[in-house]
């Protein structure tokens, strides 16, 4: 009856979103792919032309490439470990009966709303600065030598900052999952004499597994492309010590104008993200069916 009309109307209503996203996805990516096989230098256009895979070869053989992959993985894995384990512990703590739970929640979630450049600069200057930072004040109080965080341990410093930004997210998601746990089930387990640890392992953890999966997948997407935090703190240095893949591609493209190599790096980043996305989509898709 009206279904034919409804169906064509539905298609018409969906068209703008689909077309916009299709263009947004296909056009720039196709250009990147094309540039990755070209010699293209806006400052020196004489030698421009098709060069096959040599951009990829150049990008691979760059010692910064391996370092950047390593840094990218270090950042993703360490922040995931800190935020997931810390998030579970924090969620368990906040879920306890206490006074002022609402305010505690608000305080804990706050860092997530701080824009990345502010988060990074506040940590760099207010907390970790070797002379005027709070850590330096604490070190001096104990007569210790303040640590030059960004000079000596740049990756560790960035991991700490990014973990601070994402711990609230993990905590909030895991706490939401925890609070949907059936109280009666918990009580029954308690009555049967299950201690806190066995209750956690056999009841709470399985209940939270879906939320944990979601936290890991979503954070991975964002952590693979950390950029502003590195830009305003170490600028990738010293040397390439804190350069991740996105930052290396940015440097090649906009600072060195090696567009071909940057595009090759971009394609590698896409492949990396696709591997992650493959698992992410499967998990989210499964949840959609429920």
């Amino acid at each position: 009856m009206a279904t034919q009309q409804t169906r064509s109307l539905a298609r018409f209503m969906m068209a703008p979103s689909v077309v916009l996203l299709l263009v947004w996805m296909v056009v720039p990516l196709a250009l990147t792919l094309w540039f990755s096989f070209q010699q293209y230098n806006p400052l020196n256009p004489i030698r421009d032309g098709f060069v096959g895979f040599s951009n990829y070869a150049l990008f691979y053989s760059n010692p910064a490439f391996l370092q950047s992959i390593l840094n990218t993985l270090t950042l993703v894995v360490s922040v995931l470990l800190i935020t997931v384990i810390g998030g579970i512990l924090l969620a368990l703590l906040i879920d306890q009966p206490m006074w002022g739970q609402g305010i505690v929640r608000i305080l804990v979630i706050s860092p997530f709303f701080v824009m990345p450049p502010v988060a990074a600069l506040v940590w760099k200057n207010m907390i970790m600065h070797p002379q005027y930072g709070v850590f330096a004040d604490i070190a001096r109080f104990f007569d210790a030598q303040p640590i030059d965080w960004f000079g000596q341990h740049p990756m560790l410093a960035i991991v700490i900052i990014v973990a601070w930004q994402w711990l609230p997210f993990a905590t909030l998601i895991l706490l939401t999952a925890l609070q949907s746990l059936d109280g009666e089930q918990k009580e029954a387990a308690e009555m049967d004499g299950a201690g806190f640890v066995s209750r956690f392992i056999y009841l709470t953890l399985p209940h939270m597994s879906r939320a944990i999966t979601v936290v890991i997948l979503i954070q991975t997407i964002f952590l693979l492309s950390v950029y502003a935090e590195i830009l305003v703190t170490t600028n990738g240095g010293p040397g390439y010590a804190s350069t991740n893949l996105p930052f290396l591609v940015y440097q090649k493209a906009l600072l060195e104008f090696k567009i071909g190599q940057a595009s090759a790096g971009g394609i590698i980043a896409v492949i990396l993200a696709n591997i992650v996305a493959f698992f992410a989509m499967r998990a989210v898709g499964k949840n959609l069916d429920k």
Binding site: M14, S17, V18, L21, W24, M25, V27, P28, L29, L31, T32, F35, I221, L224, S225, Y227, L245, P246, V249, Y250, A253, L254, I259, A262, S263, G265, G266, I267, A269, V270, L272, A273, N274, V276, A277, A280, M281, V284, G285, L288
Partner: peptide, 22 residues
């Protein structure tokens, strides 16, 4: 379609930095 839309979110921004800039 929903899954495909979500997948566009996973494209790393740097990969298209220069084309978009251009």
């Amino acid at each position: 379609i929903l899954m495909w839309m979500l997948s566009t979110k996973m494209m790393p921004a740097v990969a298209v930095l220069f084309p978009i800039y251009l």
